[in-house]
Amino acid sequence: MSLVSEGADFQESLAGTRLAEPSLATVGDYVALMKPRVMSLVVFTALVGLAVAPGSLHPLTGFTALLCIAVGAGAAGALNMWYDADVDAVMTRTARRPVPMGRVRPGEALAFGLTLGSFAVVVFGLLVNWLAAGLLAFTIFFYIVVYTVWLKRSTPQNIVIGGAAGAFPPMIGWAAATGSLSLEPVLLFLIILFWTPPHFWALALYRTEDYARAGVPMLPVVAGDTSTRRQILLYTLILVPLGITPWLFGYTGALYGTTAVVAGAAMVALGWQVLRERRPAERASRNLFAFSILYLFLLFAVLLVERGWGGLIARLAA
């Protein structure tokens, strides 16, 4: 069977549409391909990395950097939806995405992602700097090839290693502002890296059947419920001290330190509740999943207010 006919079979079985029909994809479908909610978190963490970095940066260069990071994140989202269309089609959470719904063909998503990604990296390199552009290119490569293609379907450690892709944006923002890297953006990278497992495993605990049906070896599917709950608490216990380190190293003030301690204590308390909870109860898992988003947002927002806001205003005034 040729690749073309395999693709046709997949498309027809997936969406019940005819390949030969001209596309009905709207601009909104292409926006959905870029995972705007993920993109907003990526832009926010990149903004923090860019704002807390030392030195001066023209506001327009900063805007261009964030635009390229946003478009690069969108490209990664589109390429992920292209490759994962078969998995997305059988999962409740993702079944209504444009490719499994048949509104955008896999080939269109692939072309869209490759075009966006290429433009984002080249424009970033030409208008900002090539270190940041190289990091963006590596992040897209890591998310698609290492996480989506390789790890996601082959190991329960998929999001532990793959989480690095989501952790790079503050480093890219820092590199865009300074043309170099240092310990501080690496700390921000580590915070997001160790935040990812408790965040996604909390979700996977109450979506286990979804992942099992799709054949994705998430930790609850492979190692079971109890082991996952232990791992969530373990990673939370690593995350919380990491969240405090920017303050301990003197990079931030008391407001950040207090926020990291209080929010970190809440994360540990929720992780403990998850450990004690047993299925079919899922309230603690849902609470941890929701609070983990707030936790990360709080840390970075306070960092932005405390460290970055003054820097941003100074740059705008310069």
Binding site: H58, L60, T61, L67, V123, L127, N129, L131, G179
Partner: peptide
Amino acid sequence: ILFYVMTLVKGPGVLIRPI
């Protein structure tokens, strides 16, 4: 427009792109 404005902003430094 982005390339045009960035060229104005960077001026002669537009060709200097530090790594």
